[in-house]
Amino acid sequence: MIAQAVLNEWYPVAMAAQVGAWPGRQTQLLGSDIAVFLDAGEIVVQRADGSALAVCLRYGHVWACLGTPAHDLFPIPEADQPGRRLVDCGVVRVKCSPLRAVENFLDIAHFPFVHTDVLGAEPHTEVGRYEVQIREDSDEVWATKVHFYQPQAAKSASGGIVTEYMYRVAAPTAAVLYKTCPNKPDAWDVIGIFVQPLTEELCEVWPWMALFDDATPQADLIQFQQMIFLQDRSILENQIPRLLPLDPGKEIPTQADMTSIAYRRWLKRKGLTYGAQMVAA
């Protein structure tokens, strides 16, 4: 039995530009078989029984809701900002809880060990104090003033810098980060991950970017992001248990994990427990 709160959320199910005619993209959402296809110029998402799902097209992706949408899809104002390049990075399947995929995206402390010499490197492993809040107005989790030393923060970066980050959980399986833009110090690069929960232990992840970078070829930008995300994949597939434990005590966080603590609390409070483990096994 899937909680109504889970069913009433929006989830990414395809890259809009890649949707073709029937049979289109045959996939799953929250354990239900669905098809995403083009019919008379319109993108349709339907269940195996032929019933159609609520659909919206945003940020290059097709979003669907299995229940009754509780609200509009979250805004990313930077997506409409002039001068930004929007980059769809394709999809990667990962054998893990969709919530673990999001939590990993919110994590900085792993950079030196998993994204070695790119997003982090020993001895620069310290995570300073940063601020975390659950914003009641937008109902989102935010982390701000996050600083970390990075050898190559972006494809366009030419050396090590202390990067500033902001993290934002915009939906149970979608998160956005804002980080120092190497080409435009007064602006933020925006990177999202949109996670499609196929089942509680299997997801497909769509990285997406909105950057100020006119110079780097598209393929280089995509490959940089894919390189980063695929470095995480072997971690995500080897966490035990596969489900994200929401009970404190099953996993031990520290101050560097404040974003993840808030994310877990927010999920629990909202009853968004698809992909989560409630009772310590």
Binding site: T116, E122, E126, Y149, Q231
Partner: peptide, 23 residues
């Protein structure tokens, strides 16, 4: 390449971690 992690043991553990505010 992605999927093959660095053998971190090839380097010794760092003796001291530079303070973030000094960078």
């Amino acid at each position: 390449m992605p999927g093959i992690h660095r053998l971190h043991e090839l380097k010794p553990a760092p003796e001291a971690v530079p303070a973030l505010e000094d960078l």
